[in-house]
Structure formats: C-alpha cells, structure tokens
C-alpha cells in the first residue's frame, strides 16, 4: 500500500497528463516511492502498477530500464560514479578505485554499517565537469579528485 503522502505526490504528477493516460506518470510514481522507501522492491513496483492501473510488468520494464531506480537495497548514501567515456578519460577509474578501497565495497554493494553504496553510472550529461558522481540521484560533485572524494565521505559520515 502506498502512503498517503506518496499518493498525494503521485496525484500531483498524474494531473499533468490526460485522465486516460495514467501510465504516463509511471516514472514519477516510481521515483516518489523510491525516495520514500529507499529502494524499489517488487512489492513497491506492484503497488505503483496497481495504483496507476497498469500491468505490473509494464512498471517493471521502466524500473529496470533506468539505472537511477534501485531494485536492490542501497545504503543511506548511494554514490553513483560515471564511468562513461568522458569521465573515464578524465580519470574516473582512479575515483572508483579510491572509493572502493576507502569504503571496502565493490559496485552494487552496501557497506556493513548500511551507510554507503557505490554504483556504476552512465553519462549524466555534464561531461564538462568530468570526472563526476552524484549522491542519492540528487547532489552532483564535479571535477573529482581523491581528496575531494575523501572530503565528501567525511561530510556524509558526519551528516
């Protein structure tokens, strides 16, 4: 069951589309539920599909296509590092190595304290700031160096 807050937000999104095109709001709805619950379990995808009145598999197609949706539990902070061509040429491998070494986890793994998770990201469309990463799909950090990463982790650890 979706929470009342989630429903309110989804209704806001639904209002942007014609009444008989509820499927159009699937991306927003999945995002809203993911933010609320941390990640998208199969039950969450089912909840969204049921609420929109679309086949469950249609919601799953969307949820599994975009890699900003998480179908597995993630830590409190999901750090997504872009590893596409521009970032790679600007040294994203080094950033990834450093992150993995510091946190002691590989891609798609969560640290034992449940705080961090590293993900491999696709191009975020800001190649001018390469190499870059974002935290929880929302906060982007550009022109990364290992020092910047350390500072970021420290800040997140505090918060």
């Amino acid at each position: 069951m979706l929470s009342a807050e989630a429903i309110e937000k989804i209704e806001y999104e639904l209002a942007k589309y014609p009444k008989d095109r509820r499927q159009a709001a699937v991306m927003s709805a999945l995002r809203i539920v993911q933010i609320e619950r941390g990640w998208l379990s199969k039950e969450s995808v089912t909840d969204v599909a049921k609420y929109l009145g679309i086949p469950e598999i249609a919601a799953m197609e969307v949820a599994s296509f975009y890699n900003m949706y998480d179908l597995q539990p993630v830590g409190q902070y999901k750090i997504t590092v872009c590893t596409n061509i521009s970032c790679m040429l600007r040294g994203s491998d080094e950033i990834v190595d450093h992150l993995q070494h510091t946190l002691g986890v590989g891609f798609n793994e969560v640290t034992a304290d449940g705080k961090f998770c590293i993900k491999e990201g696709e191009c975020m469309g800001c190649c001018g700031g390469a190499p870059l990463l974002h935290v929880n799909n929302t906060h982007m950090h550009e022109f990364l160096t290992t020092e910047k990463v350390d500072a970021l982790l420290e800040e997140l650890n505090k918060g």
């Binding site: 086949p55 598999i57 799953m60 197609e61 296509f65 975009y66």
Partner: peptide
C-alpha cells in the same frame, strides 16, 4: 488485452 510479458533490463 493484457500485457503479461515485458522486456526488463537494458
């Protein structure tokens, strides 16, 4: 009339 199969993943 009912989408029972779909393509997941990318």
């Amino acid at each position: 009339g009912m989408q029972e199969l779909g393509m997941v993943g990318r």
